[in-house]
Nucleic acid binder design. Sequence first.
DNA 1: GTTAGCATGTAAGGAGTTACATGATTTT
DNA 2: AAAATCATGTAACTCCTTACATGCTAAC
Lengths: 196, 196
Amino acid sequence: MAQSRSGMLELAVLGLLHESPMHGYELRKRLAGVLGPFRAISYGSLYPCLKSLETAGEIAPTASIAAAEPAPASRRARIVYALTPAGKERFATMLSDAGPITWDDEGFGVRFAFFGRTDADVRRRILEGRRSRLEERAALMRASLARTRERLDTYTLELQRHGLESAEREVRWIDDLLAGESGSRESGSSTTQPNE
Amino acid sequence: MAQSRSGMLELAVLGLLHESPMHGYELRKRLAGVLGPFRAISYGSLYPCLKSLETAGEIAPTASIAAAEPAPASRRARIVYALTPAGKERFATMLSDAGPITWDDEGFGVRFAFFGRTDADVRRRILEGRRSRLEERAALMRASLARTRERLDTYTLELQRHGLESAEREVRWIDDLLAGESGSRESGSSTTQPNE
DNA sequence: GTTAGCATGTAAGGAGTTACATGATTTT
DNA sequence: AAAATCATGTAACTCCTTACATGCTAAC
C-alpha cells in the first residue's frame, strides 16, 4: 500500500522511536549513530518514510503537549512521532526474524545497534549468520590468494591480503561476542536497561 | 546524451577492456574481482552500461574474428567489445582525477584495482585522500567512545570499538603502502608490467 | 529431445540522492 | 532586518536490482 516500505531505514526509525518519541529532524541526527557515523540519511528519504509508516498505522504524530518538555513554547509545527501498538508489534517481529539481509555489512550494523532489545537466541542466530557470511568471504579471498600465479599485480594482491585479514579479525571479534553471550545470560527483551 | 553514465561501473568496465577485449558475459565475471568478490553486478546494469559506452564512442564491438581464439566456431552472437582511442583517453582522464568519490569504500576499491596503470603521483593522492577519510571516521568514533557516559549499551560500544580498530588498521596499511611507494619509484603508466 | 550453461537484452521498480520550495525562531 | 538554524516537505533523477523474454550450443 504505502510507498517506500522496506529495508533498514524503516527498522532504524522504528527502533529509535521505540526509545522515545521524536520529530523527523532529530530522528535524522540520531539515525547517523545507528547507520554509522558516516552515512547519514537525507530528508528526501526520511520524510517520505515517516509518511508511509504513518499511513501504515505504525507510527502516529503526538500533539507534543506532553510534560517533560522544557517548555520551548512553539517552534515550527514540529511533528513528534511515537510508535503505535501496531508499530511496536512490527518492530518486535522485525527483530525476531533474522532474514538474509541481516548478514551484509549495512544490515548487520543496524541490527547490531538494537541488540540491547533483541532476544538472546535471535542475537545468537544473527551473530552466527554474520560469522558464516564472513567465513565465505574469507574463503573466497584465500582461494584467490592461493592461486597466486594468476596475473594479479602487487596492488590487487595487497588489497586481498588486507581484506582477508579484516574478515578474519571480524570473525574473531564475533567469536568473542558469542563467547560473551554464553557467559552472562540476559534476555534483552525482559531485562531492558534504563534508556533515557 | 547517453543514459546510465557515471560512477564506478563505467570505470571498472573501461579498466577491464583496457586489459583485453571482452564480451559482456565474461566482463561480468571479471567485474566481481574488481568490485569485490562479493558484490557482482547484474546484467540489467551491465548491458545498458555497455550500450551507453558504445553510443558515446568509448567502446566498439569487434568482429571477434581475431586470432588467439581457440576456434570455438560460433556460439551465439557474442559481442566482443574493445576500447576505442576515445575510450582509452577517457579511462586515462578518469584515472588521473582523484575525485571525492574516490575516498569511500566502494570507490577506493575500484580505483585501487587499477593502481597498476595509475601514475605514481595520482596513486599518492588517492592513498592520502583515503587515509584522511579514515582518520575522520576514526576521530568521530574516538570522540563517541570518549563520552562513554552517553547511554550506549554494551553492544553499540563494542561495535564502535571494533569499527575504530578497523579504521586504525587500515590507516596503518595505507601508511605501509605509502612507504612502499617512496621506496621503489615506478610510473605505472610507462613501466606497464605484462598483463595477459 | 530436454536440460544446462552460454549470451544478450528490456521493463518495472526499489532505495536512495540532490536540489528546490517553504516557513518559523533565534541570534547577531 | 539579516543571517543562521530549526523544521518539513516535494520532484526529478541516479544507480542498481529483479523478473522476464529470447535464442544458441553442448551434453545427457
